[in-house]
Design a binder for these strands. Structure first.
Lengths: 147, 147
DNA sequence: CGGAATTAGATTGCGTACAATTTATTTGTA
DNA sequence: TACAAATAAATTGTACGCAATCTAATTCCG
């Protein structure tokens, strides 16, 4: 019935954990693209804004720690958000190495419009609520331990 | 005890499914980088090779369907794999639009060396076997239904 | 049969990701 | 207090990932 197992089974796509993780993330981020486009954000810009909406002003470093992104990625993303008028970037007074990232009035206003994004995504991922909770818990566990 | 719920809770990072998915995928792919570097592959090249090792020659289109990648991504990746000497790219005789991707001798030989990759990853993701199976099943379900 | 529609890859342009390096600032310590 | 070590961003270079577009080959139909 079943195929004969051999040492190369570990190289089969169906036996991977990383591949469905990679593909699923990619597909879901792709779905975000359209609703995000309507409010003028990319996915990366969106998660930056979510952190600022929830926690307020913080440094680029702190932002990076929350988002698992380094300055190589964040610096250009933040410059674009600044150019779009959603955030301010200013050197911290206490430590001139740090860059404080804060919301502009338009950045704060955008939060209301952003409510349509999770709404647009609603129902796109065909998992039950319990399955979604289980999936999220396992991902968060893997993320925390893998750090 | 708990925070008062409001309509903006859906915009909190901790309530997202996509964010841990995105971050987890990114972190795990990052861990692959080192062992893959030892056998001369990137992660994207690796999943291409896995498909070819498992299923043999197929067109770029078929490869893309299995990996959720389009020609914009695959064409340059396949050209690099060709330059590295792991695959051949040749137009299909029956349909000159299609490109058959097949393994070279070096590409076949690489399979043995690639066994060290899952081995190097072993234990890096701190989930129990059952948790890993649950996670993979949920990801595959989400992936299939979202397609 | 023959032109329109479809299809497979390739190309272009933009936006990440990230390792590695650089620069400026701050901290730790002899 | 000098000065080495550490730290935060910025920069550089490489590799995706994908939407949009283009080209060539094939198929569909009237």
């Amino acid at each position: 019935m079943s195929e004969s197992p051999d040492k190369f089974d570990v190289l089969k796509l169906g036996n991977q954990l990383c591949f469905p993780l990679y593909a699923c993330a990619k597909e879901i981020v792709r779905i975000y693209r359209e609703p995000l486009g309507k409010i003028g954000l990319t996915y990366t810009q969106y998660i930056v804004m979510m952190v600022l909406w929830e926690f307020g002003t913080m440094t680029e470093k702190e932002l990076g720690a929350k988002l698992y992104l380094d300055s190589g990625t964040l610096t250009p993303v933040l410059k674009k958000l600044e150019k779009s008028g959603f955030v301010k970037r200013q050197r911290a007074e206490k430590d001139e190495r740090s860059l404080n990232i804060s919301l502009t009035d338009n950045g704060i206003k955008l939060k209301e419009k952003a409510l349509q994004v999770p709404q647009a995504l609603d129902g796109c991922i065909h998992l039950s609520y319990d399955e979604m909770l289980t999936l999220r818990a396992l991902l968060n566990k893997a993320l925390k331990e893998t750090k």
